[in-house]
Design a protein around this nucleic acid. Structure first.
Lengths: 244, 244
DNA sequence: CGAGCGCTTGACATAGGTCAACTACTGTGG
DNA sequence: CCACAGTAGTTGACCTATGTCAAGCGCTCG
């Protein structure tokens, strides 16, 4: 499928899958029309970098489909994923000229980008957008804080279980209120990405997944597909304190 | 000093020490007057709880002086400080009815509180406030993400050094651009609070401080007063990635 | 078929946690 | 003024969860 095809496919805001949750959620007809003049779509393949920390940013964007990560690194290479970007999440900070984080596509991805200058102008002049942006930022802050509890205080097993809970919940929400029992979903992350998100090594991630499997908390099909026979059990393993 | 005394002392916004950095930073005369009608001061002693997670919130506030912590806990008592609130920082989330975190005074503290309903109304109607709130929230999000790197990837020694760097920087900023060399400041946190902020135990905090002392990275007077003979050296020990 | 990647597993090392004793203060009551 | 109890912090001995290093498996791609 070419870029043009997708552009056509998603071109109309009224047909947009994230219309109700993205920055533009509260916008009316006229505001959407205005946003339309400054927007364009971009596609990325799994693994591609989207933004490098330090880049001059001339756009902000919403994730339309797929998963991206926000990462921060130290000079010696230790890296930490500081945010997972899922459909409807916002990329970029209005008012900031240079990117603070690396953004990487973890799966194939479609972004709805806005030229930064006119978008910033619109944030200033359109309360509906400013307010939505504030809401979304506050939600991200809550998510980041929940993650701080995980990073600082949870065991490796609890970390893995927490991640599975979160991915399960977000997958459910996207797919609509599916059957809760016998939940099944795909991990959008490699073991390495999981490790970088959870503050662990790849080996510990692998071992803990094996242990959860051995304990029948989860079932694996291949290496990425997860079945959860007893979701409350998984939540107990996560030790509570999850959210997002 | 009685509450009334302090109220009188801080009562006038024009004499307020955080006037230029708090939520009200961008407000004009008329807006300040409006804020004045919904505001009141509260004092807390070191150690006092300010808000319990789950409480119904009927105010939001700015920290005027002192230090408070935002904490999150698990059922079994493991706790993590997810935010340090310093003068000019904002407490509470507009649009949320119940508190999500425990807020505790770590030192004696003065807060400038606003009744929640009228404040929310004002956020809606006053772009200057809405915009400032967005800025502050984005800054907090950046700080939270920097902390995620610390929690997930730094060693105990780096964590301690990072905390010292941050406290030093914020103290400097409050006191004005003081002499950089031979920096000296008080820790506003107990060893336990440091442990809860850094995702460590009290013992590890104590040991690492002793080691930094032994390595002449810091000098101690008593248990709380720190002297830093070589600030760049301390920053190297922190392993970079700090901010706030 | 071989190379490369994502993942798993094992053997071993170690940073940081746990448990316990001890010091140094600080405030309280006799 | 002393005895005492209660905090905050330090230090030691030991333990364990997680990291490190290394080998190997099972794909997919060329």
């Amino acid at each position: 499928m070419s870029i043009t095809d997708r552009t056509l496919h998603f071109g109309s805001c009224s047909a947009c899958p994230i219309r109700k949750q993205a920055v533009c959620a509260h916008c009316g007809r006229e505001e959407l029309r205005q946003l339309d003049t400054m927007k364009y779509y971009r596609n990325f393949e799994a693994g591609q970098p989207i933004v490098w920390s330090g880049d001059r940013m001339n756009f902000v964007a919403s994730i339309v489909s797929g998963v991206a990560s926000l990462t921060q690194s130290m000079e010696d290479g230790r890296t930490q994923i500081v945010g997972l970007l899922l459909p409807s999440d916002f990329v970029g900070r209005p008012g900031r000229e240079f990117a603070e984080y690396n953004v990487t596509a973890k799966t194939d991805l479609v972004m709805c980008c806005f030229h930064k200058k006119p978008f910033e102008e619109m944030v200033r002049s359109t309360p509906a957008i400013a307010q939505r942006l504030l809401e979304m930022t506050l939600d991200e802050l809550d998510a980041a804080r929940a993650w701080m509890l995980l990073l600082g205080r949870k065991t490796a097993r609890e970390k893995i279980a927490s991640l599975l809970v979160i991915i399960a919940q977000r997958t459910l929400k996207l797919e609509g209120a599916n059957s809760r029992a016998n939940l099944e979903f795909d991990l959008p992350l490699t073991r390495e990405a999981m490790a970088d998100y959870l503050g662990l090594t790849i080996e510990t991630v692998s071992r803990q997944i094996s242990m959860l499997k051995k304990a029948n908390v989860i079932l694996l099909e291949g290496t990425r597909r997860i079945r959860v026979p007893d979701f409350p059990r998984l939540m107990v393993e996560a030790g509570s304190g999850a959210s997002v």
